[in-house]
Design a protein around this nucleic acid. Structure first.
Length: 566
RNA sequence: GCCCCGGUAGCUCAACGGAUAGAGCAUCUGACUUCGGAUCAGAAGGUUGUGGGUUCGAGUCCUACCCGGGGUACCA
């Protein structure tokens, strides 16, 4: 018997078999079949699955789609997974899963447990999701939180889809911004000793730099102080970056994100590192040219709108050079089959040339996905405040978590498609926290746990329950909703649209609440889970148990907690 | 100028090229002396920015324009 993961394939083969049978019987002309075209109707009234094949065949077959649909439906064999099919205009074949098949899914879910809805589409493939990777020149802000929520959920969905996934943070500990950061830190540090120095023009004016300098002074006293006018000690910059990275890591852990690797940009330049090797490949391919004292990647020959500098005239490599080396390392040295970079939309101009460069160093550009998320606009007191780390005015991810909690923040970030700009009204987020849909979903999980606990107190267990007793519409609707999880995981993992997760979670929670409250609506206490009917109680406890598994799975995938009580 | 992303209900947003465009919030109306009401059932709310086009079928694809945002560095 097929399960939730394979039911679609099963139905496709049924339809395709019916088409062949119809052709053999002479009911249909012998035309090429463009797949069975099984989809899920938006409206459940149109069945659990539908085939639009007749609509697609109409032209080639020179017959009205409705007639084609009738012919195919007539040749569908009896099958335990479905009831008899419906044909609906203009030419849909609607399939409804049989109650017996639905009931069996409860057993399937309980048997598979926490791995319920795992897929095999990524089997044997290594995927990497690199996300946040904010410069360690300041604390994470709200926009970084969006990237964190998206990247982490995508990574989880890819794991569920069968990929071997690594989460990575690329630490920009080299480069120009790092120097500005170090100089700012030294200026603040000197100010603490009474020197009258200004922070650099391109530096970081935020107050957190004063705190950072104060921390250094508390730890190390004046040991980093040099005579006035002398260059700053390099070790201070290194220490500052280390402290900043430590803060960022703590913030992300609080947010529920754990990385497999923190990858240092600086390490690209160590010894015979990635940088040397990637540049050697480009040089050998004749795609480097010296001009105006700088070294250029001649990307315009490869379809880009212009060439780009990889080594400045002062000898320092650009960020672009680092990224080329870094992606050579991802694809060639570490052998990832799928690489996803989650970036803020302000980096979008970099996407095309990175793909071009990745191809030039031997990577498959189709295996590189850059997922851009649009910027987060903060509203506070009605005014829009743009986040900009260097203006020194921004709201940190920590502050956001203080206000609404990590779970709510993650849910809220995931709810929007990455490509849509989002307004984050901080005042509203606080005042509406009790109305936030995150509570709705988590509450459903807590209720599920509570029912199981209450039942156990009264001596009821799900063990040995007969799922064929689950025939009420709200029971079957709940099972249908649980079955969708595999579809959702597939869509999220293949189309990189994590917003499907929270929407699905709300829908699943709703199906449970509706089931759970059905007895109120009908004023029929026999619809409660725990009743005098011992057999019915056991059967419904199995449903509750399976629902808890499914809901916990999607909550976990979103990086949220699945609370047992609230 | 050129490139990218948006424009869908009062608000915030969904919608593998499919059927009557859906949720949450806000508004209105019902239900329960609750296996936890942070609940359920229902109502109302739409010219999917505009004009063309492709398709059996377009919010979705193509095209021209309008509006908002971002990018267009020897910053990252």
């Amino acid at each position: 018997m097929p399960d939730t993961r394979t039911i679609r394939n099963h139905l496709e083969s049924l339809i395709e078999g019916a088409v062949r049978a119809a052709v053999e019987a002479g009911d249909l002309p012998d035309v090429a079949i463009p797949g069975a075209a099984i989809e899920r109707p938006k409206d459940m009234a149109n069945g659990d699955f539908a085939s639009t094949l007749p609509l697609r065949l109409a032209r080639a077959a020179m017959k009205p789609p409705i007639e084609i649909a009738r012919s195919i439906a007539a040749h569908l064999p009896a099958d335990a997974t479905i009831d008899s099919p419906d044909v609906a205009p203009p030419g849909f074949i609607n399939l409804r899963l049989s109650p017996a098949f639905l009931q069996q899914q409860v057993e399937h879910i309980i048997a598979t447990g926490p791995g319920y809805a795992d897929l095999a589409i990524g089997a044997g493939k290594k995927a990497q999701v690199e996300f946040v990777s904010a410069n360690p020149t300041g604390p994470l802000h709200v926009g970084n939180g969006r990237g964190a929520a998206i990247g982490d959920a995508l990574a989880s969905a890819l794991e569920a889809a069968g990929y071997e996934v690594e989460r990575e943070y690329y630490v920009n500990d080299a480069g120009t911004q790092t120097s500005y950061f170090a100089e700012t830190l030294y200026a603040r540090y000197q100010q603490l000793f009474g020197r009258d120095v200004d922070i650099p023009k391109d530096g970081y004016p935020g107050d957190y730099m004063i705190d950072l300098a104060r921390g250094v002074k508390d730890e190390a006293g004046d040991s980093f102080l040099r005579p006035e006018g002398d260059p700053m000690p390099a070790e201070l910059g290194t220490l500052g970056i280390e402290l900043m990275v430590r803060n960022i890591r703590a913030t992300l852990e609080r947010f529920g994100v754990r990385y497999d690797k923190w990858y240092s940009e600086k390490s690209l330049y160590d010894g015979e590192g990635a940088y040397d090797q990637a540049m050697a490949i480009l040089r050998e391919a004749g795609t480097l040219a010296e001009r105006e004292g700088a070294l250029w990647f001649t990307s315009s020959d490869l379809g880009e709108d212009k060439d780009n500098v990889v080594v400045r005239s002062d000898g320092r490599p650009t960020y672009y050079a680092s990224d080329i080396a870094y992606h050579w390392d991802k694809f060639i040295r570490r052998g990832f089959n799928l690489v996803i970079d989650v970036w803020g939309a302000d980096h979008h101009g970099h996407v095309s040339r990175l793909k071009t460069a990745a191809k030039a160093v031997g990577a498959d550009p189709n295996a590189l996905h850059v997922l851009l998320y649009q910027l987060v606009f903060l509203k506070r007191g009605g005014d829009a405040v743009k986040i900009a780390k260097r203006s020194g005015e921004f709201v940190t991810l920590d502050e956001l978590m203080n206000d609404v909690g990590a779970d709510a923040a993650r849910f809220f970030f995931l709810l929007r498609s990455p490509g849509a700009q989002m307004d984050f009204d901080l005042d509203l987020a606080v005042t509406q926290s009790s109305e936030n849909p995150v509570f709705y979903v988590q509450y459903a999980h807590a209720r599920l746990c509570s029912i199981l606990e209450r039942a156990a107190e009264q001596g009821h267990t799900p063990d040995g329950g007969d799922v064929s007793l689950l025939t009420h519409p709200t029971e079957l609707a709940l099972i249908r909703e649980m079955m969708r999880l595999a579809d959702v995981i597939e869509v999220v993992a293949t189309s990189l649209e994590p917003q499907q997760l929270p929407h699905y979670a709300m829908s699943l929670a709703n199906a449970f609440h509706a089931f759970n409250d059905a007895f109120k609506q009908s004023n029929d206490p026999s619809l409660k889970v725990i009743t005098d009917d011992a057999a019915m109680t056991k059967a419904r406890l199995r449903l509750v148990l399976s629902a808890r598994i499914a809901l916990a799975r999607v909550l976990t995938m979103m990086g949220m907690t699945a609370p047992e009580r609230m």
